[in-house]
């Protein structure tokens, strides 16, 4: 196993880990705002590591450039999407969950 292969595996694993964290956060977090944190950000790093693994695997200048541009895209569009979701929720007066609302028997309307 070459060093490159080891790095590709490591970065791919990190990508999977952070995407997994995003999925867990999506399920465990209590409201739309905190879920937006999970859905759009742990994901950003997950995608970043995965793209890094792809760039290393192919290793040619063209692929690295394209992978770099993909990262730029992801890092521009993810905050925009997060902002759009949160802003839509806020403008419809969806309440923000705080520790005061912490009640395991909480009903959902």
């Amino acid at each position: 196993m070459t060093l490159i292969t080891a790095l590709v595996i490591a970065f791919a694993a990190l990508g999977v880990f952070f995407t997994f964290v995003a999925a867990v956060g999506m399920i465990r977090l209590p409201d739309i705002y905190s879920r937006t944190h999970a859905a759009t950000k742990a994901d950003t790093l997950g995608a970043g590591f995965s793209i890094l693994a792809v760039a290393l695997y192919f290793g040619t200048a063209g692929e690295i450039l394209r992978a770099g541009l993909l990262v730029v895209f992801v890092y521009y569009t993810n905050p925009t999407a997060a902002h759009a979701i949160a802003r839509a929720a806020y403008s419809r007066d969806i309440d923000v969950w705080t520790t005061k609302d912490d009640d395991s028997s909480e009903e959902t309307a």
């Binding site: 742990a42 905050p79 802003r87 806020y90």
Partner: peptide, 26 residues
Amino acid sequence: FANSITLTPGTLTVDADGHHLLVHSL
């Protein structure tokens, strides 16, 4: 500024009005 807040997990820009930002923190 708003995007670096949002990109950093734990903080999320919810709304922006001029230079006033509404930020949700986890």
